[in-house]
Design a protein around this nucleic acid. Structure first.
Length: 136
DNA sequence: GCCAACGTTGGC
DNA sequence: GCCAACGTTGGC
C-alpha cells in the first residue's frame, strides 16, 4: 500500500464538493512527475487531500478506486487520470504551518517540491499527519 | 502583487 | 547538448 498527497485549489475543486460527488476523476495533470505518481497508484491506496492557495491545509483522506487510465480532458495520449472516493473528513485539518513546524516532517515532499500536484508520502509521514489531524 | 522554484521551449 | 527566456504553481 502506498500513500500520497493530492492537491487542489478549493475554488477549482474543494473537499466539500468531493464529499457531495462521492467520487471524482483526478484529471488535468500535465506534469510528468505527477503523472508518474498517478500511474504508480494502486486501488486502495490512500491519499491526503490538500487545499492549496486558500486554506493551505490537509482536509481529508481519499482512496484510489480506479487506477490510471487515459485522461479524457486531453487529446495527447501520455496523460492519465485516477478515480478517488472520500474516506474521511479530518476532525482537525493539518495546516501547512503545522507541517513546517514539525521536525519529523521536514523532508516531506509537500515542502520540498511545493509545486508538484501529486506527491508520494512515506507511510510514517502519513501516520504522523493523520495523528496530527486527530489530536489537539 | 511579488517572488522563488522549477518545468518547458527554442535558438544556437 | 547548453542555456536563456518564459510560463506556471503556490506561498507569503
Amino acid at each position: 500500500m502506498n500513500y500520497w498527497i493530492i492537491k487542489s485549489e478549493p475554488h477549482k475543486y474543494a473537499w466539500e464538493k468531493f464529499l457531495i460527488d462521492g467520487r471524482t476523476h483526478w484529471d488535468g495533470v500535465r506534469n510528468y512527475q505527477a503523472r508518474n505518481n498517478l500511474q504508480a497508484m494502486r486501488e486502495g491506496d490512500l491519499a491526503l487531500f490538500y487545499h492549496s492557495n486558500e486554506g493551505k491545509e490537509i482536509v481529508g483522506v481519499a482512496k484510489v478506486v480506479r487506477e490510471a487510465y487515459p485522461d479524457t480532458s486531453s487529446t495527447e495520449p501520455q496523460w492519465v487520470m485516477v478515480d478517488f472516493a472520500p474516506v474521511e473528513t479530518l476532525p482537525k485539518p493539518v495546516t501547512l504551518a503545522a507541517i513546517k513546524a514539525n521536525p519529523d516532517l521536514q523532508n516531506i515532499g509537500l515542502l520540498r517540491q511545493s509545486r508538484l500536484s501529486v506527491i508520494a508520502l512515506k507511510p510514517e509521514e502519513f501516520d504522523k499527519l493523520l495523528l496530527m489531524a486527530h489530536t489537539d
